[in-house]
């Protein structure tokens, strides 16, 4: 436990102090964008990971990211809400929708569930194209930057438009949200709810037979998972100040799932690591120019052959030997 605490403290120090200092020293401001994306995608994959935790393969997180993004964008531009109000609303909207969708589809398992969530992603994109409120293929653009947030007259977060460096602001926002999400995730996993989820993962019938309310649990975890997705989507919209139906497509949904796999499904920090490795790996591989995707996918396939249980299973083996 002590070792864990040191690790967490080191991580927080690295994320909130070291990264800004190093970036300021080297002048690689573009890294902020990469790191912010990593943090946000990690929030989304935290949700996917949670659905893996109840034994469901979720390839529909892109759908909720897109929904969350649109909810935030529409509320900001058409209703005039502040960004900070839309953030939780986007998450809650996604959670609500996911309850409606989840009630029928969570009865499915394995490949069936995977397929229908993938279809959901594509359908959400089509819905975004067709519905009048989303402005179709043209998308919603020139969304204002987040304003200031103050509680009881004390300004907690200054207006992003007046910030000297909004990139840093966004990075800190994304990193904070990511840390909070993973704290929530860790709490869920180590609570009674986590134990119940593990029982679902192993054998749903058996769990139901000893009095676990499986239907309720499934929908609850799926809703939490979608909340994360919506949150990530809403912040993405604030950063890019625009959203299009193609902002999150099938490939993004698949990526969310891959991040979880690569990190390792048995570890809470797995999706975070997976997102970091894959996203940074993709960026680094841009030196390979047109062969980027080829090298990236080859590496992914090779990793699957060597480490089929995720990157963090490396540490597992060491622990086993001791």
């Amino acid at each position: 436990m002590n070792k864990n605490l040191v690790g967490i403290a080191a991580f927080l120090l690295a994320a909130f102090v070291l990264v800004p200092v190093v970036i300021a020293a080297t002048g690689r401001w573009d890294l902020y964008y990469t790191l912010t994306s990593v943090a946000l995608l990690a929030i989304g994959s935290a949700g996917v990971w949670l659905t893996f935790y109840i034994g469901r393969i979720n390839i529909g997180q892109g759908a909720y990211a897109l929904m969350g993004g649109y909810v935030s964008a529409v509320l900001m531009t058409k209703v005039g809400f502040s960004f900070w109000a839309t953030l939780p609303l986007a998450g809650l909207f996604c959670a609500g929708i996911s309850v409606l969708i989840g009630l029928p589809i969570l009865r499915l398992r394995g490949v069936y569930f995977a397929m229908i969530t993938l279809v959901l992603t594509e359908v959400t994109r089509l819905a975004a194209l067709a519905l009048p409120v989303t402005n179709g293929a043209k998308g919603i653009t020139s969304i204002p930057l987040p304003g200031s947030l103050s509680v009881f007259g004390i300004t907690l977060i200054p207006d992003f438009a007046t910030m000297a460096n909004p990139k840093l602001g966004f990075y800190l926002l994304a990193a904070t949200l990511m840390v909070l999400s993973y704290v929530v995730l860790w709490r869920i996993v180590s609570s009674r709810l986590g134990h119940l989820c593990r029982s679902l993962q192993q054998n749903e019938e058996l769990a139901a037979s000893i009095g676990v309310n499986t239907a309720y649990l499934r929908v609850l975890t799926y809703a939490i998972s979608s909340f994360f997705g919506g949150l990530a989507g809403a912040v993405f919209v604030a950063i890019s100040q625009s959203i299009y139906p193609s902002s999150f497509a099938v490939a993004d949904s698949v990526n969310f799932m891959l991040y979880c796999f690569v990190g390792g499904l048995g570890y809470v920090t797995g999706p975070m690591l997976g997102t970091f490795v894959l996203y940074f790996g993709w960026d680094l591989l841009s030196i390979a120019k047109q062969y980027q995707l080829l090298v990236y996918s080859s590496l992914m396939i090779a990793m699957m052959l060597v480490l089929p249980n995720g990157l963090l299973s490396l540490f597992d083996r060491k622990g086993g030997k001791k």
Partner: peptide, 14 residues
């Protein structure tokens, strides 16, 4: 079982 999915997705990208 799900590991094959990652592999299949990797092959799709490839």
């Amino acid at each position: 079982d799900e590991s094959t999915m990652l592999l299949a997705a990797g092959i799709a990208f490839f």
